[in-house]
Protein backbone atom coordinates (compact mmCIF):
# COMPACT_ATOMS: atom_id res chain seq x y z
CA UNK A 1 0.00 0.00 0.00
CA UNK A 2 2.33 2.68 -1.26
CA UNK A 3 -0.01 5.49 -0.38
CA UNK A 4 -0.93 4.51 3.12
CA UNK A 5 -0.67 7.32 5.65
CA UNK A 6 2.31 6.67 7.91
CA UNK A 7 1.87 5.30 11.42
CA UNK A 8 2.58 7.67 14.33
CA UNK A 9 3.14 6.91 17.97
CA UNK A 10 1.37 9.26 20.35
CA UNK A 11 2.67 10.48 23.71
CA UNK A 12 0.61 12.63 26.00
CA UNK A 13 1.44 14.66 29.09
CA UNK A 14 -1.49 15.30 31.36
CA UNK A 15 -0.68 17.70 34.15
CA UNK A 16 2.32 19.57 35.39
CA UNK A 17 5.21 17.48 36.43
CA UNK A 18 4.17 14.29 34.72
CA UNK A 19 6.18 13.09 31.80
CA UNK A 20 4.73 12.20 28.43
CA UNK A 21 3.38 8.68 28.24
CA UNK A 22 2.78 6.50 25.24
CA UNK A 23 -0.97 6.20 24.73
CA UNK A 24 -1.25 4.51 21.35
CA UNK A 25 -0.84 4.97 17.63
CA UNK A 26 -2.69 6.35 14.66
CA UNK A 27 -2.29 7.17 11.00
CA UNK A 28 -1.82 10.67 9.59
CA UNK A 29 -0.32 12.22 6.47
CA UNK A 30 2.10 14.44 8.43
CA UNK A 31 3.08 15.52 11.93
CA UNK A 32 0.67 18.43 12.02
CA UNK A 33 -2.33 16.25 11.26
CA UNK A 34 -1.00 13.52 13.52
CA UNK A 35 -1.19 15.95 16.44
CA UNK A 36 -4.74 16.92 15.53
CA UNK A 37 -5.76 13.31 15.12
CA UNK A 38 -4.14 12.47 18.43
CA UNK A 39 -6.20 15.13 20.05
CA UNK A 40 -9.39 13.72 18.58
CA UNK A 41 -8.59 10.06 19.11
CA UNK A 42 -6.68 10.03 22.38
CA UNK A 43 -7.72 13.10 24.34
CA UNK A 44 -11.12 13.82 22.86
CA UNK A 45 -10.21 17.48 22.71
CA UNK A 46 -9.26 18.06 26.29
CA UNK A 47 -7.44 21.35 26.72
CA UNK A 48 -4.19 21.75 28.56
CA UNK A 49 -2.50 18.60 27.44
CA UNK A 50 0.75 18.37 25.61
CA UNK A 51 0.97 15.93 22.73
CA UNK A 52 4.06 14.47 21.13
CA UNK A 53 3.88 12.45 17.96
CA UNK A 54 6.72 10.50 16.43
CA UNK A 55 6.58 8.66 13.17
CA UNK A 56 6.79 5.00 14.15
CA UNK A 57 9.47 4.33 11.55
CA UNK A 58 11.75 6.82 13.30
CA UNK A 59 11.69 5.12 16.67
CA UNK A 60 14.66 3.05 17.66
CA UNK A 61 13.69 0.27 20.01
CA UNK A 62 15.68 -2.17 22.04
CA UNK A 63 15.39 -5.63 20.71
CA UNK A 64 15.65 -9.00 22.35
CA UNK A 65 18.97 -10.61 21.43
CA UNK A 66 18.93 -13.67 19.26
CA UNK A 67 20.83 -15.75 21.73
CA UNK A 68 20.98 -16.15 25.43
CA UNK A 69 18.16 -15.26 27.77
CA UNK A 70 15.63 -14.43 25.08
CA UNK A 71 12.70 -14.17 27.29
CA UNK A 72 13.62 -12.17 30.32
CA UNK A 73 10.56 -10.31 31.32
CA UNK A 74 11.30 -6.78 30.35
CA UNK A 75 9.57 -3.54 30.82
CA UNK A 76 11.60 -2.38 27.88
CA UNK A 77 10.66 0.61 25.88
CA UNK A 78 9.25 -1.16 22.93
CA UNK A 79 7.53 1.87 21.55
CA UNK A 80 7.44 0.50 18.11
CA UNK A 81 3.78 0.00 18.37
CA UNK A 82 0.77 0.69 20.47
CA UNK A 83 0.73 -0.14 24.11
CA UNK A 84 -2.43 1.70 25.07
CA UNK A 85 -1.48 2.74 28.57
CA UNK A 86 -4.15 4.28 30.65
CA UNK A 87 -4.33 8.01 30.40
CA UNK A 88 -4.11 9.79 33.75
CA UNK A 89 -7.41 10.77 35.34
CA UNK A 90 -6.73 14.43 34.95
CA UNK A 91 -6.67 14.18 31.17
CA UNK A 92 -10.37 13.58 31.32
CA UNK A 93 -12.78 11.07 29.90
CA UNK A 94 -11.98 9.27 26.70
Amino acid sequence: MKNEWPLWEVFIRGQHGMSHRHVGSLHAPDAEHAIKNARDVYTRRNEGVSIWVVEAANIAASSPSDKGPLYEPSESKVYRHPTFFDIPEEVGAM
Binding site: H27, A28, D40, V41
Partner: peptide, 15 residues
Protein backbone atom coordinates in the same frame (compact mmCIF):
# COMPACT_ATOMS: atom_id res chain seq x y z
CA UNK B 1 -12.66 8.69 4.29
CA UNK B 2 -10.44 7.42 7.09
CA UNK B 3 -10.98 6.29 10.69
CA UNK B 4 -9.25 9.29 12.23
CA UNK B 5 -11.55 11.67 10.32
CA UNK B 6 -14.60 9.70 11.37
CA UNK B 7 -13.65 10.15 15.00
CA UNK B 8 -12.83 13.84 14.53
CA UNK B 9 -16.11 14.59 12.75
CA UNK B 10 -18.01 12.90 15.56
CA UNK B 11 -16.23 15.14 18.06
CA UNK B 12 -17.30 18.24 16.17
CA UNK B 13 -20.88 16.98 15.97
CA UNK B 14 -20.84 16.21 19.70
CA UNK B 15 -19.60 19.72 20.48
Amino acid sequence: PVLEEDIALANTALD
